[in-house]
């Protein structure tokens, strides 16, 4: 008998009785998510952008709001200057970003192991937890979000959803990428005596430019 059969047989023997039809199991699973407002925290503000911003701030994510994509590159310039960073950026190769005016900043597609700053776009934002959703894909290298010390992320306000379950409902109908990640704050660790240190392996700084309202 293969290990697979041994395990499944042992599970069935352990559970005993007749096994329920898949439809009945699915119905019970769905019921376990009923009345979601009783088992999740309420939003901390009345609008999604405000709630997102408040939650993001808790873990040290900084947020700047701009009205339109045109103003985005200016905001990134200000960020680099404020942190005294060189005018250089690993740029996600999405047309929404490469089409902008980056004069004065050297941009590149490659991501070095010691990259200082990178700019990418979030697929979505989640207000409940202040999380950004990023996904792997052709123009979406995962390492862009992990190698740099400063990770700058564009979040369109109209992609915000209220709760984690809202995001789950949306992604359920979509093709699954190899890797989907909820990013909730800059990388951190409490592994030495519980004291919190930022920039453990991933970015030590997470900056969100929220576009539109």
């Amino acid at each position: 008998m293969t290990a697979r059969n041994r395990i499944l047989t042992a599970v069935r023997r352990g559970l005993g009785g007749t096994r329920r039809p898949p439809a009945a199991i699915a119905a019970q699973a769905a019921m376990l998510l009923d009345d979601p407002e009783f088992i999740r925290p309420a939003l901390v503000a009345t609008t999604l952008p405000e709630a997102f911003e408040l939650k993001a701030a808790v873990l040290g994510t900084t947020v700047e709001r701009v009205a339109s994509m045109d103003q985005m590159s200016g905001s990134v310039r200000r960020y680099l200057a404020a942190h005294a960073l060189p005018p250089s950026l690993a740029l996600q190769q999405s047309r929404d970003l490469t089409g902008l005016d980056w004069s004065g900043i050297e941009t590149h597609a490659s991501i070095a192991p010691d990259e200082v700053a990178a700019l990418g776009i979030a697929v979505r934002g989640i207000a409940e937890s202040g999380s950004l959703v990023i996904r792997s894909g052709a123009d979406k290298p995962i390492l862009l979000s992990f190698l740099p010390l400063h990770h700058i992320v564009v979040l369109r306000a109209d992609t915000l959803v209220a709760h984690l379950d809202d995001y789950a409902a949306i992604m359920q109908g979509e093709a699954q990428p190899r890797n989907a990640i909820l990013i909730t704050g800059p990388s951190g660790t409490t592994d030495i005596e519980g004291s919190y240190v930022r920039g453990a392996h991933g970015p030590g700084f997470l900056h969100v430019v929220m576009v539109g309202s």
Partner: peptide, 8 residues
């Protein structure tokens, strides 16, 4: 509330 990275 959530860890910094929740990865699927």
């Amino acid at each position: 509330e959530l860890t910094q990275y929740t990865t699927f």
